[in-house]
Design a binder for these strands. Structure first.
Length: 663
DNA sequence: GAGCACTGC
């Protein structure tokens, strides 16, 4: 079979960077790559999908002895990718996983002292750096998928720059990226050499709509049906923004299909949804082979952009939007909005049609609209809370955040907010240094600092078991399922766990009940238990995994490696509520006459989210996880508190608020 | 009385 490569289709997208014919297949470039790594401290490798850069290059370097007895670290933004690539490389090299080739991701470490090629999530490598700031066991660090600009990779960029200066040529860095940003990476690392590798991607014909569409949902519906009528066999992947849209089309497509002209002679359509919060058994359906004589339509969120590759897809329908969360430091709130995708995302989506054969992509926006999209979405560092990042940089010895070599400086307001929060939590001293023991403990915990403080206070207040359950449950996707047709049943089911004290304690009740269900026989009893109660089984498993990991580490009365004895407050929830307040006091709020709440720290006006068990109950004083701005400011995950606890639980914060007249 | 995209330690 002759492969129709993407060179022609993508030529325009490569314009200005490098001509297509100058890209090399990785096997042919092997000798050249080894020489280049020898000659340069930093290399930027631009590789198309399927270029083999993640699997083959580390093997070349290892065999050529370039690690000089040390190890090669290869980071990935996602744990499944780290595990999958490590497996493949171990297999290709014919070695046992965990020996010469291994991986390390959260909850799963398959590496040893003998490991020479180690695949890790980027967050894991940051964790290693917190203990060993010069990453002394590695000679080569490979940052894969660098164009995704995740927060941990951002730390690693600056850190590697510092390490390279310290280790004077003793540390090699290879940045792997999609086309975008290659020049920027090269510039940041003082003129690093840029190389282009050829991939194995089939051509994708990209179509635009001639005029903007009124409703992209309707346009997706019509396009899917049109493809089914006009195009030869091959599955369809449609990108939408969320669960609600997916459920709508799941209903509409089978409704409309029989109304088409000549519908009798058409094959059947199998409509399959895929999004992160979907139950695992449902998710598995996208990977099942399409039955003969049928065509599969996959309705997906951006989970199918990078995290999941669906086989059999020949047609992509791209609505052009994504639901994105963004942090506003000034308002100290997150917002969740449907926004246009970036050019990079549009290309990524279209590319999903050309994994196995030539395909077609239907973009439901005009070409002019595409050209007007921003090149890539803003790096994470520009749009999230920076509390964890600041804490980690302090641990890495960065006293002044503005002196750290960021590739793109984070917003000043976000840095200030992070410093304020860490000071208020007591994680930093008045002079801005990591405090002892609290700051040092918080860095070790794999939690947002506020939730770490909640957990540590739980230890101090003799309710660490309950506090641990609360942070485990808030660290997962929502556990209460909410599909449109089962809403009333879900509300009814939730009643058995409901606590008048609020959502955190309700979540605690859910986890406590879940843990009493036998995990062994009968098979999948816990999954069935969740199904009957309309709870998300995946979220529950994850919460329990976090909790159990902490409990295992709590042998010798250590909780997650910090000095916290495991204790239960039994049925007295008072200490737990105080522990919650001690972590989340920046989100303590007081009832106003119009039934909204005023956040004490910021003066923000919020309403209790209607999904909260406290919605409509009007407690005088509340404390909650976060402010989410959709149609208005909503407080999510809310617990009742007493104003009189403030001076006792968070005295420094209380005095500051009192003197500023906020109380 | 609204509706949570996606990752990770």
């Amino acid at each position: 079979m002759v492969e129709a490569r993407s060179a022609v289709a993508q030529a325009r997208e490569w314009h200005g960077i490098q001509k297509a014919q100058e890209r090399l297949p990785i096997a042919e470039a092997r000798k050249q790559l080894i020489d280049l790594v020898k000659a340069h401290q930093t290399l930027v490798l631009v590789g198309e999908t399927g270029s083999g850069k993640s699997t083959q290059l580390p093997q070349f370097l290892h065999r050529a002895g370039l690690a000089e007895g040390k190890s090669i670290a290869v980071t990935q933004p996602r744990r499944v990718a780290a595990i999958a690539v490590a497996r493949r490389v171990a297999q290709e090299m014919g070695v046992q996983l965990g020996a010469e080739v291994g991986y390390a991701v959260r909850f799963d470490d398959r590496s040893s002292a003998a490991t020479r090629i180690k695949y890790l999530t980027d967050g894991m490598l940051v964790r290693e750096a917190l203990i060993d700031p010069t990453l002394s066991r590695y000679k080569i660090v490979v940052l894969d998928e660098a164009h995704e600009r995740t927060l941990p990779t951002e730390i690693l960029f600056g850190l590697m720059k510092q390490i390279q200066a310290q280790r004077k040529g003793g540390m090699k860095l290879i940045i792997m990226s999609a086309t975008l940003d290659a020049a920027k990476f090269a510039h940041f690392f003082d003129g690093a050499k840029v190389i282009y590798l050829q991939g194995r991607q089939f051509s994708v014909d990209t179509m635009y709509v001639p005029e903007p569409v009124d409703s992209y949902l309707d346009a997706v519906l019509r396009t899917v049906l049109q493809i089914h009528v006009d195009e030869p066999e091959g599955d369809i992947l449609a990108f939408l923004t969320g669960q609600e849209e997916i459920e709508t089309l799941q209903r509409l497509i089978p409704e409309r299909l029989p109304q088409l002209e000549g519908a009798e002679s058409l094959g059947k359509l199998l409509v399959v949804p895929i999004y992160a919060a979907l139950q695992p058994e449902q998710q598995a359906k996208v990977f099942e082979p399409t039955p003969a004589g049928m065509r599969k339509v996959i309705l997906a969120t951006n989970i199918a952009e990078t995290s999941i590759t669906v086989p059999g897809v020949r047609y992509v329908v791209d609505a052009g939007f994504v639901k994105a969360r963004s942090y506003n430091a000034r308002l100290q709130s997150d917002s969740l909005q449907v926004v246009p995708i970036s050019k990079a995302q549009a290309r990524q989506r279209s590319g999903r049609a050309g994994r196995e054969a030539a395909g077609k992509a239907f973009r439901l926006y005009t070409e002019a609209a595409f050209l007007g999209l921003q090149a890539a979405s803003a790096p994470e560092i520009q749009r999230v809370s920076l509390a964890s990042l600041v804490l980690q940089l302090k641990q890495l010895g960065v006293a002044d955040m503005t002196a750290f070599p960021f590739m793109d400086a984070p917003p000043k307001a976000a840095l200030l907010r992070a410093l304020e929060l860490l000071l208020a939590l007591g994680a930093l001293d008045a002079d801005g240094a990591l405090s002892k023991p609290l700051g040092a403990q918080l860095v070790r915990l794999p939690l947002e600092p506020a939730f770490g403080k909640l957990l540590l206070s739980g230890g101090a207040m003799s309710c660490s078991e309950e506090a641990l359950s609360v942070v485990s449950m808030t660290s997962t996707d929502p556990v209460f399922l909410n599909t449109r047709n089962k809403q009333e049943a879900a509300t009814e089911m939730r009643k058995q766990f409901l606590s008048p004290l609020g959502d955190h304690i309700t979540l605690l009740n859910v986890l406590t009940a879940y843990m009493k269900v036998p995990s062994g026989f009968p098979k999948n009893e816990r999954g069935r238990w969740c199904g009957e109660r309309l709870l998300n089984a995946r979220s529950m498993r994850k919460a329990l995994e976090i909790l159990e990991k902490a409990v295992i580490e709590s042998k010798n009365d250590l909780l997650l490696g910090v000095q916290v004895p495991l204790k239960s407050c039994e049925n007295d929830m008072d200490p737990l509520q105080r522990a919650i307040l001690s972590g989340l006091f920046m989100h303590a709020a007081i009832l106003l006459p119009d039934n909204t709440y005023k956040v004490i720290a910021s003066g923000q006006i919020v309403s209790i989210h209607p999904s909260s068990v406290l919605s409509g109950r009007k407690p005088r004083c509340i404390v909650f996880d976060e402010i989410l701005r959709t149609t208005r400011n909503y407080a999510r995950n809310v617990t009742v508190m007493e104003p009189s606890w403030l001076p006792e639980v968070v005295p420094a914060f209380f005095r500051k608020m009192e003197s500023s007249g906020s109380l």
